[in-house]
């Protein structure tokens, strides 16, 4: 009797579980089309970067690389578009900005989690409130301030603002609230450690996973930022990668199709490498941000 009952229960779900081949095929076809749509543009950049302008003129789409990479590279010589300079500037700015953002956001999040102080809730409410204010709306005042202080062509003005990163403080606080036990902090106090030492040596190591995730997104965000560097940096040797890229639209490259593709490819190459190495963490990080948010 009992056996009959279980088979009866199992039956409808077993039918449901059987895969409908047409339905599955449609799913895979759509997914593969989207996959190609997402990856093909970058492959096209790579392939066209190695082709001559004449080849591109006859057929702009090809899947097979050619052998004009060096020729295309030579086009950039003596021109304003300089990948090496852009790369160096972007690397310096993004690395410093990320380091500052991660460290000071952790510190602020720790202040919001570990201590009971009068203005704490108000301060946190404030951080939540300013989280979504985009940089662009403050740009006029920011530019005028930098201009007055003669700091327009100065990388520091792109690095220092990242000390105050409300969004990151928010995520760091979420993480700390779940993973910091106040007993550890207290036992460090009993051992005579001062608060600053406790944060650097005991709390920061606990925060490593959150710091890694936030560092990736902060770095990419800083690397991709166009607006502020574009209004502040006028000297060519200071320009960042996205500002360099915008030079590729200039008239001097109008007929140098291969060179344009090469320039574009070189600017995405560092990001593609980072992404291929860290994609698992990045995708997990996006999901985590959504759940926490």
């Amino acid at each position: 009797m009992a056996e009959v009952a279980t088979t009866k229960l199992k039956k409808p779900s077993a039918i449901n579980k059987r895969k409908n081949p047409i339905y599955m095929t449609v799913i895979y076809i759509v997914c593969i089309i989207l996959l190609l749509l997402c990856l093909m543009p970058f492959w096209l950049l790579l392939v066209n970067a190695t082709r001559s302008s004449v080849e591109i003129q006859t057929h702009a789409v090809s899947l097979i690389p050619s052998k004009y990479l060096q020729n295309n590279w030579k086009v950039f010589q003596g021109k304003d578009f300089n990948v090496a300079v852009g790369f160096k500037n972007s690397l310096i700015i993004s690395t410093c900005a990320t380091a500052l953002a991660v460290y000071f956001s952790s510190l602020t999040a720790y202040a919001l989690t570990a201590y009971e102080w009068k203005l704490r809730d108000g301060f946190f409410g404030f951080i939540m409130g300013v989280m979504m204010i985009p940089g662009q709306v403050t740009s006029i005042g920011f530019y005028q301030m930098c201009y007055k202080l003669h700091l327009t062509n100065n990388h520091l003005m792109l690095i220092l603002p990242s000390i105050a990163a409300p969004m990151m403080v928010f995520f760091m606080r979420q993480y700390l609230q779940a993973s910091l036990s106040i007993e550890i902090v207290e036992s460090a106090r009993v051992d005579g450690a001062n608060e600053f030492f406790t944060f650097n040596r005991i709390v920061l190591p606990i925060m490593k996973p959150a710091m890694a995730t936030q560092a990736i997104f902060s770095f990419v965000g800083s690397w991709n930022n166009l607006f502020t560097p574009m209004i502040l940096l006028t000297k060519n040797e200071l320009k960042t990668m996205p500002v360099m890229v915008s030079l590729l639209k200039g008239d001097i490259y109008r007929t140098e199709y291969g060179a344009i593709y090469l320039g574009l490819f070189l600017t995405v190459l560092p990001l593609i490498i980072i992404y291929l190495l860290l994609s698992r963490y990045i995708v997990a990080g996006v999901a985590l941000g959504a759940v926490k948010g």
Binding site: F104, L107, V130, F142, M145, I163, A164, F199
Partner: peptide, 25 residues
């Protein structure tokens, strides 16, 4: 007091690079 001390860098940077530019804008 450490809560206040550890919040100083954020507050200073925010005041200089976001709040002042907004007010000035």
């Amino acid at each position: 007091k450490w809560g206040y001390i550890f919040s100083i860098p954020f507050v200073v940077a925010f005041a200089l690079f976001t709040l002042y530019p907004i007010v000035y804008t």
